[in-house]
Simulated assay, not measured.
Amino acid sequence: MDDDLEQLSREQLILEVKKLRAGIRNHRDSSGHDLCWHHPALWELLPEKHTPIPDVPEWPQFMRGCIRYRQSLDEQCPNAPRVKRELDEDGIA
Rank of each mutant, 00 (worst) to 15 (best):
D29P: 03
P52L: 13
D55L: 15
L15Q: 06
E89N: 10
E6M: 05
S30T: 13
Q71A: 04
S9G: 02
D55W: 11
C36W: 15
K84E: 06
R28Q: 11
R70C: 08
R64K: 14
C36E: 15
D55H: 14
P60G: 12
A80P: 04
N79K: 02
P57L: 09
L73K: 04
L8T: 01
I24T: 07
H39A: 12
L35E: 10
L73T: 06
G32N: 10
D90S: 14
L45M: 14
D29F: 10
P54M: 14
D74F: 02
S9D: 04
R68D: 08
D2S: 04
S72W: 06
K18N: 05
C66M: 15
W37P: 02
K84I: 07
E11N: 00
R68H: 09
K18V: 08
R70A: 11
K84C: 09
M1V: 07
G32H: 14
E6A: 07
W43Q: 08
K18C: 02
I24N: 02
D34M: 11
D34P: 01
P54C: 11
Q71V: 02
V83A: 04
D34C: 05
F62C: 06
E86V: 07
D88Q: 08
E86W: 08
V17L: 06
M1L: 10
Q76E: 02
I92T: 10
K49H: 03
H50Y: 15
D29E: 13
G32R: 15
E44I: 06
P57A: 10
L45C: 05
R10Q: 03
E58P: 15
E16N: 03
R10T: 02
K19N: 08
F62A: 11
F62Q: 07
Q7P: 01
P57Q: 10
L42M: 14
A41D: 14
D4T: 04
L8K: 12
L87E: 11
D88T: 08
D2V: 00
L13F: 00
S72E: 05
C66L: 14
P78W: 03
I14Q: 02
E11W: 00
K49R: 14
G32C: 12
P54W: 09
N26T: 11
K19L: 05
V83I: 10
R25I: 10
L45P: 07
K84R: 11
E89D: 13
V17M: 04
L73N: 03
D34Y: 09
M1Y: 08
I14Y: 01
A41L: 08
S72N: 03
K18L: 06
E44R: 14
E75M: 01
Q7V: 00
P40C: 09
P52A: 13
Y69D: 05
L87T: 08
D55K: 15
P47G: 10
G23V: 04
N26I: 06
L15A: 03
P47E: 15
P52K: 11
M63C: 09
E58F: 12
R10P: 00
V17D: 02
L20C: 03
C66S: 09
M63P: 01
R25S: 07
L13S: 02
G32A: 13
